[in-house]
């Protein structure tokens, strides 16, 4: 596997977007980023750049600060020092912040709300006390069909399987039509089969032209998952987290998880991680 060369996310993806010509714009730029809780330094002096329309996985041992970094990108944490900048996909629209969708390992659905009501939650919060419009509801239905849950609009979370609940959480994250999707071990609590299926669906949504969604940053513990999905894998070394290595994955989508090239990439990343710990 050759390093350094610019990763591509697949030919179809290039074709589906009209504004793909020319050099890519940055989505996230971090320089000399440090994040800590009190005296404890969790992220130490990390710099990177994630491009628009890129799928990046953050991979590393538990407690290496991947989730902390993700939270900082989501704006839930303030960096101790250094800078962390997010850019909108439509750069010409001045001072409009990029929209961010966030998803955790747990679905975090409200059990007293139906699927549709759960997906509408971010809109309701944004509106304050105002009523959700029929346009928003139509949008919610659209997003639910994107995650193939159209027939479960009126179901309550407890009536859904773990995988379906996580789809609802994905739909809710997509509801705001985010530029940037941040995933914190999104399918980590699911069984292997469901997980692979949802990964494929996630890729499809990312590559489709139906959403504005351009950039995905995902925290994961699974090396095969990182290799199967990402354009680049950011490998972190343990605390305080250092960005140890950036591995571009130059496999065409759809990726064949049975292929030799895939197996080689996985074992390369695995050896890399072992060498850091």
């Amino acid at each position: 596997m050759s390093a350094m060369s610019k990763p591509l996310s697949g030919a179809e993806c290039e074709a589906s977007s009209p504004q793909s010509a020319g050099p890519r714009q940055a989505a996230i730029t971090a320089s000399d980023l440090c994040i800590g809780y009190g005296d404890l330094s969790v992220i130490d002096n990390v710099s990177f750049r994630i491009d628009q329309r890129e799928f990046v996985s953050l991979l590393g041992p538990s407690g290496c600060g991947k989730s902390t970094l993700l939270r900082a990108i989501a704006g839930l944490l303030t960096p101790t020092s250094g800078s962390l900048q997010l850019q909108n996909s439509a750069n010409e629209v001045t001072d409009s912040k990029p929209r961010v969708g966030l998803m955790f390992q747990k679905p975090l659905l409200l059990p007293w709300r139906t699927t549709l009501e759960n997906v509408l939650l971010p809109v309701e919060i944004e509106l304050g006390g105002n009523r959700v419009s029929s346009i928003d509801e139509a949008r919610a239905r659209e997003v639910l069909s994107l995650v193939q849950l159209s027939s479960f609009e009126d179901a309550y979370p407890k009536q859904l399987s773990g995988g379906m609940q996580q789809r609802v959480a994905l739909a809710r994250a997509l509801m705001s039509d985010p530029d940037l999707l941040l995933l914190d071990e999104p399918f980590g609590a699911l069984d292997e089969l469901t997980r692979e299926m949802l990964n494929e669906e996630l890729l499809e949504i990312w590559r489709s032209a139906d959403t504005r969604l351009k950039t995905i940053v995902m925290v994961t513990h699974s090396i095969p998952e990182a290799v199967a999905l990402s354009d680049r894998v950011f490998v972190f070394a343990a605390r305080p987290a250092k960005l140890a290595e950036v591995v571009p994955v130059e496999l065409e989508h759809p990726r064949d998880l049975e292929s030799q090239a895939f197996a080689k990439s996985v074992s390369y990343v695995r050896r890399l991680i072992r060498s850091f710990s």
């Binding site: 939270r71 975090l108 971010p122």
Partner: peptide
């Protein structure tokens, strides 16, 4: 309510009041 719910709510830009009404009370 799990603290993760509050993180989720703040990622939606929810106010304290909204988190109270829509999370804590139910």
């Amino acid at each position: 309510a799990d603290s993760k719910y509050f993180k989720l709510f703040s990622s939606f830009g929810a106010s304290q009041r909204q988190a109270f009404r829509k999370l804590r009370i139910p």
